[in-house]
């Protein structure tokens, strides 16, 4: 009896015949246990960033390419705070407004010598930070030919996502909402259509605000999520990093488990027979 009660608190053994095996995420030739990609910007300090990376259990973080501060000592540089035995770098082309600028940034990132993987980001509008699809496609085509592994940030547009897959991108990263907006998944139907059509991993990038947004994206079948602001600007960033890890895992499990269909009316969970005082 005592043992039965103790067992209630533990996870039930999973019947493998009834579950879809949760395969690790595979992008290009690499395999990741974590489906949460995290940024390195906007943290109060590097120590907080490092803790957030630990709590999130991320295996890939984005970094930006910028002019070196010639007056700084270099002692406190970003890379000192990233454990590259555990975490792969994903340099971005943030701040680029045309294909040529993005390509130039990629060449510099490659010369830095730590990654041939690029988060391709070509912005089309300063106010919304929405991507310029024409320029993104142009850059992606060329960079794939040059041998880069390209993960493009793109509007939640199934046609644009398919075109990026077709030019050889290793994964496609549609936005949930504008960068840093925290608005969550604005067009779940589009995300679902993108996932359904894709043969490469779909990573929701940008716009996630809280854990339920991340879980929702994963429930829609996305392969992973990339976020920065939602963690870095939370009141307690490390706590949010942990929440996001759990949400991504929960959403993934729910997707694999297969949710029930939505019904307009009630459907009782307890038997309707054997009710007290019922006429037989």
């Amino acid at each position: 009896m005592d043992m039965d009660i103790a067992l209630l608190g533990e996870l039930l053994p999973v019947d493998e015949t009834e579950t879809i095996i949760n395969k690790p995420l595979r992008i290009a030739e690499r395999v990741f246990q974590s489906r949460l990609l995290v940024g390195t910007g906007k943290y109060a300090d590097f120590k907080t960033m490092q803790l957030c990376h630990e709590f999130s259990e991320t295996q890939m973080v984005t970094v930006a390419v910028r002019r070196l501060d010639l007056k700084a000592s270099g002692e406190n540089a970003l890379l000192h705070w990233i454990d590259r035995n555990k975490i792969q770098l994903l340099p971005n082309t943030a701040g680029c407004y045309c294909a040529d600028e993005a390509i130039r940034t990629c060449h510099l990132a490659a010369e830095l010598g730590l990654s041939q993987w690029i988060k391709l980001e070509v912005i089309g509008d300063k106010k919304t930070l929405l991507p310029d699809i024409e320029e993104t496609l142009k850059a992606a085509r060329l960079l794939v030919k040059e041998g880069f592994t390209i993960l493009p940030y793109v509007t939640d547009d199934p046609v644009a996502c398919k075109k990026l897959e077709d030019v050889g991108c290793a994964a496609v990263m549609p936005l949930a909402a504008p960068i840093g907006s925290g608005l969550g998944i604005r067009n779940p139907n589009n995300i679902r259509l993108i996932v359904e059509a894709a043969k490469v991993p779909i990573i929701v990038d940008a716009g996630v605000g809280t854990a339920s947004d991340a879980a929702f994206a994963m429930e829609l079948g996305c392969d992973a999520i990339l976020m920065n602001t939602a963690i870095a600007e939370a009141k307690h960033p490390t706590r949010m990093a942990q929440a996001m890890r759990l949400a991504v895992e929960a959403g993934r499990e729910a997707f694999l488990a297969g949710r029930i269909p939505m019904r307009a009316y009630g459907s009782a969970s307890s038997p309707m027979s054997g009710l007290l005082g019922m006429a037989t």
Binding site: K42, V65, R66, A77, L108, N228, T229
Partner: peptide
């Protein structure tokens, strides 16, 4: 002057009057 100079060529690259250099590194970003 707009061309990436590979590390192995740093020692043999002579600078001249009016050259424009960009020196970049990785910084925090999303």
């Amino acid at each position: 002057n707009g061309q990436v100079i590979k590390k192995q060529n740093h020692a043999t690259t002579q600078l001249s009057e009016g050259d424009t250099l960009e020196i970049v590194t990785f910084v925090g970003g999303g």
